[in-house]
């Protein structure tokens, strides 16, 4: 498992440069709560037909920053983006909330969870 750090401004360019859709398989987008204000956003990839070769692009950001969407680079990322929006109560360009949670559910269940 290789981890590559990036910033919120560069992440789109980094993934665009890195992602070749016939070589890399996009697994999912993920969030990990770090403390009350910050969390780590991850984009996880694995190489087709390779033995356990995965790459995680990540960036550490505050909850109130808007995270850029990579939907135009990887169309299948839309669903995991919507999950991150729901679970952490953050904003991602063009991803609406409400995939899992309703108005009367517990909101942002994973924010600050597991600390």
């Amino acid at each position: 498992m290789k981890k590559v750090e990036s910033t919120l401004e560069n992440i789109r360019d980094d993934i665009k440069k890195f992602y070749d859709y016939k070589v890399w398989h996009f697994i999912t987008m993920n969030g990990v709560a770090l403390d009350g204000e910050r969390f780590e956003v991850q984009w996880i990839f694995s190489r087709y037909e390779a033995m356990d070769e995965s790459v995680i692009y990540y960036t550490v950001t505050e909850y109130d920053k808007i995270i850029p969407s990579i939907e135009d680079i990887i169309p299948s990322s839309i669903i995991s983006q919507r999950e991150v929006v729901d679970m952490f109560g953050v904003k991602i360009d063009g991803s609406e909330a409400g995939l899992y949670l309703d108005a009367d559910s517990l909101q942002m269940p994973l924010r600050g969870c597991g600390l």
Binding site: N30, V32, I44, S76, I79, S80, E83, G114, L115
Partner: peptide
């Protein structure tokens, strides 16, 4: 896919479950 993060405590920090159907919706 499972992404698991632990901090040397009995409780885990993060368990991310990526299930097959979820990723296939698009």
């Amino acid at each position: 896919a499972y992404y698991v993060k632990g901090g040397g405590k009995p409780m885990l920090d993060r368990v991310r479950i990526k299930t097959p159907t979820f990723a296939s919706i698009p």
